[in-house]
Design a protein around this nucleic acid. Structure first.
Length: 213
DNA sequence: AACTCGGGGCA
DNA sequence: TGCCCAGAGTT
């Protein structure tokens, strides 16, 4: 059985105390910059992404400027970000679609965002919740893992976790809740060798109390 | 729901 | 050097 709503709110409030500085890991000034940075961040640490975008966005921080780059030129900028060929192709194609179909603006809903190449549910939720003001819980592997361990969700896939978190937390907790769970996953509730003794939630954590993931 | 994919990270 | 992984796309 997953936690009750009351227990889930207690988890949320205690997470706020643990991580008063929790916020988006990718911190950009415009929706377009966040979209591109989030596409780049798949299978890649945000340290690398931040390094790359710092240079890339100096001259190419809008879709109109981005599409002036050739595929090869863009690959040169983002080479250290994992699957760079696919990402370069997707970023150029998505930028063209944004110009031609959305008047140069970021698509305004999660569903519209997901029509862009290289943008799946997780990336769409990150952009929607951080810069469009749409409450959403982006479930990456950190969120998936810690939600199951804590009992906030019981799911074998990220879609199930997203639904269950949305059901157990009120809407105005979704966006920050996502950030809180990521902080917990990165700093304490790591995939390997989690630091359970340092975790303020271990008194109610099923994983700590011996349950498997 | 399950499989594939391209490259980085780490053992 | 080979195994594993995260997220998108495809079937």
């Amino acid at each position: 059985m997953p936690l009750t709503k009351k227990e889930a709110m207690e988890v949320y409030e205690r997470l706020e105390k643990m991580f008063p500085d929790a916020r988006a890991e990718l911190d950009y000034t415009t929706p377009y910059e966040l979209l591109i940075a989030t596409i780049l961040s798949a299978q890649c640490t945000d340290v690398r992404v931040n390094k790359v975008t710092k240079v890339l966005f100096q001259e190419h921080d809008t879709p109109e400027k981005m599409v002036r780059l050739s595929q090869e030129e863009l690959e040169g900028y983002i080479k250290s970000c994992g699957v760079y060929r696919n990402k370069a192709k997707n970023i150029l194609a998505a930028s063209r679609i944004i110009i031609e179909s959305w008047g140069g603006e970021i698509p305004p809903t999660i569903e519209d965002l997901m029509t862009l190449p290289g943008v799946g549910r997780k990336t769409a939720n990150v952009v929607a919740s951080n810069v469009l003001g749409i409450p959403a819980i982006a479930v990456d592997t950190h969120v998936f893992r810690v939600s199951n361990r804590l009992g906030l969700a019981e799911s074998k896939n990220v879609d199930g976790t997203e639904k269950q978190l949305m059901a157990i937390w009120p809407e105005d907790c979704w966006t920050k809740g996502h950030h809180l769970l990521i902080f917990l996953g990165r700093r304490i509730c790591k995939a390997q060798r989690p630091l359970c003794e340092e975790c303020d939630l271990n008194d109610l954590c099923r994983y700590y109390q011996g349950a498997s993931e």
